[in-house]
Computed example of a mutant assay.
Amino acid sequence: MRFKSLLSIVEVNQTDNDLKIAIDLCSEINAHLSMMVFAVASLPPIGDYPIGTADVWVKERQSDLAALKERVNTVEMLVRDAGISASITDEYPEPAQIGHIVGRYARYADATIVGPDLLANETLKSKVIDGALFESGRPIFLIPHGTKPTLRPKRVLLAWDFAIECARAAREALDIMASAEAVHVTIVDPDTSSIANGPEPGADIAGYLAHHGIKVDVDRLPSGGEPIADVLKQHATDISADLVVMGGYGHSRTREWIFGGVTRSMIEDPSVPILMAR
């Protein structure tokens, strides 16, 4: 699909780095930028606390809201100077609400950008990714430090294992892959059973992509006992991939999203930008 609207999530104390990346991506593909700027609200005092504690909480809340307003003003100026179509909202959620609010905003964008500053924030990263990936029905675009993200990549690695999540990721990235010089469908330790990939793993998805005018190579790799995520990362380096496209796996346990092993490893230590869908 064509990406015409991107969502960027920025915490109030972050630098402008993630925002500038989002602006550049939207400028590259002439997309609308939706910005959600947020500060995390402290929980109100409960129980038999002295009155002074409540007063401190009120003052902290007022300070947070003032800082949030100032940050929104700065973001508005940066976006205006960039000359792109944009809309900016602010939120002040408690920690448990972050994922749900991100998911609500993400439903109304084609993809959510998770930039390097947010990825480096161990406290907020999982909450934002949980909401954007599992509560929106939209893909996320993970951008690690030191990379040059683009939605017009020359080389793409499509991680494939025949699952529904992989099929969804491939569908979301069709237009991106169609403009690439090469797309490497990459299968680690391919399953040749009839209920999985069949006798020629990768042939079916390669045919599907070829019908969309996509230049496809199928790479079948042995893991050699190494973690699948490590094999994918190394192969992305070997083929000079600008982007990895993959499915995101997880399940809900007591209302908290638990990532599957490969998904978790790729999120924790991405080596190249990743477009992930579920």
Rank of each mutant, 00 (worst) to 15 (best):
R152W: 04
P116R: 08
R71H: 12
A167K: 12
S126T: 15
I88L: 15
E165I: 06
A163F: 14
A66M: 10
V79G: 02
A132M: 06
D161P: 01
P116F: 02
E94W: 09
I113L: 11
S63M: 12
R71L: 04
W57Q: 14
A163N: 12
H100C: 05
Y49V: 11
G131H: 08
Y105V: 07
A111D: 01
G146N: 08
Y108F: 14
A66E: 11
A169T: 09
N73H: 07
A82Q: 10
E135F: 08
A132F: 03
E122S: 11
K127Y: 04
I98G: 00
Y105C: 02
R171P: 09
P139T: 13
V156F: 14
A159W: 07
Y105M: 02
R168P: 11
D117Y: 01
L118F: 11
E91N: 07
A109S: 15
A106E: 05
G115V: 12
E135M: 15
T53V: 08
A86M: 02
P149K: 00
E60D: 13
L151R: 02
A67W: 09
P149N: 02
Y108C: 04
Q97T: 10
Q62T: 07
A86T: 09
K154R: 13
V102F: 08
I88G: 03
E94Q: 08
R155Q: 11
Q62F: 01
F141P: 00
I140R: 13
R168D: 13
P93V: 13
D90M: 13
S136W: 08
L133S: 05
P95F: 09
T74S: 14
F141K: 06
A170L: 15
W57I: 12
L157C: 12
R138L: 09
P139A: 07
P149G: 01
D110T: 03
P139L: 10
A170F: 03
D81V: 14
V102G: 01
R104L: 10
G146V: 10
L119W: 09
